[in-house]
Design a binder for these strands. Structure first.
Lengths: 144, 144
DNA sequence: ACAATTCATAGTAGAAAACTTGGAATTAAG
DNA sequence: CTTAATTCCAAGTTTTCTACTATGAATTGT
């Protein structure tokens, strides 16, 4: 029941793009330095985000990435589902419900549905914009 | 973010014991047949439940297992945490909070805490007794 | 031209999950 | 007292997944 590095890194990556959203594209190298994550691994993760249209890329020297929409338009759920795959605690209550021959008599199924709903309820109600404001709360503390 | 077979099997095992709670010990072999799970794998799982005192064993011929308490005294959370380990979505918000040097500036942390609470809230509020009544609802359907 | 970048694909080492194997210890039943 | 049914214990194995790493091509600003 753990979120993998891929999902966590994707979140930090997107938050980094949201934070350093100046108009200039942000390079993998910069993100890598700030987030302490290997450039190559980041490339792999951002490629998924890129293909899904979550980010826009600029190729060549001085290239990099932007968010393609406003921070408020990305939920944590969107980002995690894209990179982690389904967040359902068991496959039979996932987005693509895997068939299970015990389905009719399956009692535990009800647990997984409840869990799935609880998880979705959290991640679908936090946006990148929320993360940004949490972040500024945190930095404010240090400024005082 | 998946619950492993170990946890799911442990739940079904415990529910099986609760269901076939006649006074006679229930053997691994019987559970295995009913639940379609290999005897040997069940042995391994029940050994954990046994060591934790969740079940009582009777050795030798005609031996088997009992629940050591009433179904209402087992939450799904207890069973899953024992067999799965911590249910926290990332280790830094788990029962034994693993140290993380980014902790002070960590924004995503807040997500994981919320997720953790949501998950706990579900699994800690469903007992084996609830599962038993769900089960009888289901079987009633077929009886009609 | 060249250096900085993204893009694409494959490889790899280690860990974890999901079992399987083999056999010793215990005990009710005949 | 023997035997068959069972739990108990410790390793071994196979498969899958995670978390990267490696190599190099394609693109583009300076």
């Amino acid at each position: 029941m753990k979120i993998s590095t891929k999902g966590r890194y994707a979140l930090r990556l997107m938050l980094d793009l949201a934070t350093y959203n100046t108009g200039e594209p942000v390079s993998i190298k910069d993100i890598s330095k700030r987030q302490q994550i290997s450039e190559k691994y980041l490339e792999q993760i951002i490629s998924v985000l890129n293909k899904a249209g979550f980010v826009r890329s600029v190729r060549g020297a001085q290239g990099g990435y932007f968010l393609s929409r406003a921070p408020k338009d990305y939920t944590v759920g969107m980002i995690l589902r894209l990179t982690e795959g389904d967040l359902a605690p068991v496959s039979c209550v996932g987005m693509t419900d895997v068939e299970c021959d015990r389905i009719d008599s399956c009692v535990t199924n009800r647990i997984w549905k409840q869990l799935n709903d609880a998880i979705s309820n959290v991640v679908d109600n936090i946006t990148l914009d929320d993360l940004l404001s949490w972040q500024s709360e945190l930095t404010d503390q240090y400024v005082i």
